[in-house]
């Protein structure tokens, strides 16, 4: 179903999407928030710029944005897929516990913080460019893959990545030179096994955005992982 978002506010637009029988194609989107919140069964394609919290609590639906998206994309997402043919704002994938987010270009601050996994439910986020500061804070599970393409001289991630990380993995294409990591994480060059783990997602990333897989995989990857599942264990004394 075609929906022209012009002059619709977010609740009216979302109501239309909810009521639509099948997939939705939204044109002239202009900052409407919460698109697809909690939805489980549609494919939503957006032209224009969707507003904050797009795909919040997403529960299996798929969202494609033909351009940039704003803050809080995929907040507490449970399942489904979000594909952004551009850049995203801050806090993408906050506390996401399942599903996949692919961003062609860059992500803002606090990408992937509080990401979690449980058994077979493992969220994955692939960012083609670089991310701002505070990447993966309190990460408790899942995979964050930062490819650092077209980043120029800037480091792949901003300041203070992985603070409080206690689960999951962050993959950086390239090394961690110039990036200051907190005490509670370790770093290793990606092993074969690590590479096998991310390959399907790199593959999908390339398919979605038309990159060459060999070219991306030709560079080395670095893995950041937590030392402990209990980063604050030693801090307390019973009183």
């Amino acid at each position: 179903m075609l929906i022209n978002a012009k002059e619709l506010d977010y609740s009216a637009l979302n109501q239309k999407i909810r009521e639509a029988d099948g997939d939705c194609n939204i044109s002239e989107c202009l900052g409407q928030r919460f698109i697809g919140a909690g939805m489980s069964d549609k494919h939503i394609e957006i032209s224009g710029i969707p507003g904050n919290a797009m795909g919040a609590y997403l529960n299996g639906a798929e969202i494609t944005v033909n351009g940039n998206a704003q803050d809080a994309v995929g907040d507490t997402m449970n399942n489904g897929k979000i594909v952004i043919h551009g850049s995203v704002g801050d806090a993408v994938g906050y506390a996401m516990r399942g599903g996949k987010i692919y961003v062609k270009n860059n992500a803002g601050y606090r990408a992937g913080i509080h990401m979690k996994e449980y058994k077979e439910k493992k969220p994955v986020m692939v960012i083609g460019g670089r991310t701002g500061s505070f990447l993966g804070e309190y990460q408790a599970g899942g995979l964050i893959i930062i490819l650092g393409m077209n980043k120029g001289q800037t480091p792949t991630v901003g300041n203070f990545p992985c603070t409080g990380m206690h689960g999951g993995k962050v993959f950086l294409r390239g090394d961690v030179n110039g990036i200051t990591l907190p005490k509670q994480v370790s770093v290793r060059a990606a092993t074969n096994e690590d590479i096998m783990e991310i390959k399907p997602y790199i593959n999908e990333f390339c398919r979605l955005f038309g990159f060459e897989q060999e070219k991306i995989m030709s560079e080395k990857f670095t893995v950041i992982f937590p030392d402990s599942k209990n980063p604050y264990k030693q801090m307390y004394v019973q009183n």
Partner: peptide, 30 residues
């Protein structure tokens, strides 16, 4: 929905809420 033995950490701030406007966003997303 977290693995056994892993700490469950809910830090004091919601790192996506720094203002009433941000709170409003969470309220309306729900």
């Amino acid at each position: 929905m977290i693995p056994e033995g892993s700490d469950a950490i809910s830090p004091a701030p919601h790192h996506d809420i720094y203002s009433i406007e941000d709170l409003r966003q969470l309220v309306f997303s729900l």
